[in-house]
Nucleic acid binder design. Sequence first.
DNA 1: TTGATTTATTGGAACGTTCCATTTATAGGC
DNA 2: GCCTATAAATGGAACGTTCCAATAAATCAA
Lengths: 349, 349
Amino acid sequence: MASRAKATIFDIAREAGVSKSTVSLVLQGSGLIRPETAVKVRKAIEDVGYVYNRGAANLRKAHSNVIGMVINDLTNPFFAELAVGMERVFQSAGIVPFIANTAENPVRQEEVLKSLMEQGVAGLIVSPARGTTPGAFRRLETAGVPVVFAMRRLPESRIPVIAPDNHRGAFLATAHLIGKGHRRLVFFGGTSDLVVYQERLGGFREACETLGIAARDTLVVQGETSRRGGIACLETALAMAEPPTAALCFNDAVAFGVMLALRKRGLEPGTDFAVVGFDDVVEAEHYMPALTSVSVDTAGLGERAAHVMLKMIQSRTTRAEDHIGAVNLVVRESCGPNRSAELGLGDAA
Amino acid sequence: MASRAKATIFDIAREAGVSKSTVSLVLQGSGLIRPETAVKVRKAIEDVGYVYNRGAANLRKAHSNVIGMVINDLTNPFFAELAVGMERVFQSAGIVPFIANTAENPVRQEEVLKSLMEQGVAGLIVSPARGTTPGAFRRLETAGVPVVFAMRRLPESRIPVIAPDNHRGAFLATAHLIGKGHRRLVFFGGTSDLVVYQERLGGFREACETLGIAARDTLVVQGETSRRGGIACLETALAMAEPPTAALCFNDAVAFGVMLALRKRGLEPGTDFAVVGFDDVVEAEHYMPALTSVSVDTAGLGERAAHVMLKMIQSRTTRAEDHIGAVNLVVRESCGPNRSAELGLGDAA
DNA sequence: TTGATTTATTGGAACGTTCCATTTATAGGC
DNA sequence: GCCTATAAATGGAACGTTCCAATAAATCAA
């Protein structure tokens, strides 16, 4: 049952009556080997129950074929989608990416990065944890390991970023709400330590300004980027003197929370209060009411990130261009019909 | 920018004016080293930007400290919860588990397992993909790598299993439905190639039999274990001559799909048709109506699996006891009020 | 047949660690 | 001051691969 000492290429060599070098060549699929010999060797490999020791190999080879994916919150389905997109690409390149979760914890992230480096990864795709310090990736950089950021970025860093056009997405969504006739708007969820937050809030603000919403009619309520955070945000907003009538949410999770809280208060999302989400996760379509959301093509961005990574590894560089993915607003039911009539205004969108 | 040749313990040794062996000892936190020397070495490590080469180390050490988690569907939030539970345990043991996704594809799973083995994992926690062949884990076994199955099992295999009590969970849920006064029941979703399916369906059947539901009043509709599968199942069931009034769903995803489909037909889940889910994912609580579901303490099972794994590694065995986790029914709103009155029956639950 | 060329195979050194057996330094006992 | 015991540091071999240079075998041109 429990095997004796692990088999090595020497064992195979003996079994097949060749030298260790020949075995090595076969293992690497070299064309220099006579087909019959290769067959013989492969049979020995099978018989002996040999398992290749990549660690030993990497001692000589410059490149390992391990790529790590460091994700800040695995329980968010959004990131699972991202991971799936990447895997599609890596699979066809014959690479098995290893995923590690940092649970939004910079200390854990440090450990994870260290461990991955020690493992000798060829490259890393990272969605950095909130509160990541600027120096967290310096070790990677000095070690010359290619890194790309996906979805999130760090305030100042030369590491290439693959992310959606957050500003434009927020702008589109906000314009949609204004077009529907809303005049008192709120931005729900997220905290200012995330660059993404700045970008989305920026899009929101620009839309309000250019489309003639006074600053005093726009509200910002920070909060957790989760369902729970959304619930809390709505409570806060409705407690105001002149509560808003429409919300752009930092992400879909927040939007779900907001809709939930509306229902609990006897308000109907869509008709009584308009809500737009961000990310367009699969659930958005299936919610009641279906959530209008900014679609960012998560899986597509994942694929993109994987491609960039592959190219970086191949060309032995640690630099690459940023890639800002197109976004578009998917209009469903959570913003209800136009309010124009009610307010005596034309359709402004 | 791009660093020159990677630093090794020799470089540190030179820098710190000691021997490579001393550096190695410091790296391993040996108490044999004079504290001042250790400090000196650690400083050199920092200065040089050294990164430990675990591959090289594993060449000599018997044990790597890598543990792999092989998961069949990362996009199912259920598995993300499982992963999170495991990580809690591994983190406190100073281990970074690597997660790999098989996307429910046995071929991909084969690749993933191979890659993990080549990496020299110390152990593997696996939720096997549907359609896994019996031989898929033989290599692992002959290599003496500890493996535990989490949540799912293979028909015949000596590998220890950590899973919830599916039979009992299904029994409880079904009894609940019957207690509510339902007499025509259906089991929705899943396919018979999964052992879990057999177990859950078994509990459903036993409850029906012992609580006096005739076999001709129970229906089974197989289907995908996803929202989409749930939608399809409901369509099928409602097209029958005498449609059921209550469903036990293979998992929560199916249940969500069923509720969605009900709404689309103008039926209200809970009052017009009762539905129970399985797994009790976090969304269950937040759904409209909130989903009654069998809670399996996913994260707890993850922790358990991790502990078992740790113990197996420590005691160098590939055997361990199965662990069947307790379940309990979380009653929410998706089964509505009792039907007893309507049917002239007492409360049987 | 001989030498040159091509095709297949091979031995040895190297990769960066750990671990064991030694050596060297320090302290203690008398 | 000498011997012994303990503490601290060290050199060398080993781990399982890859790669290079070298060899051996087969083919070819003359």
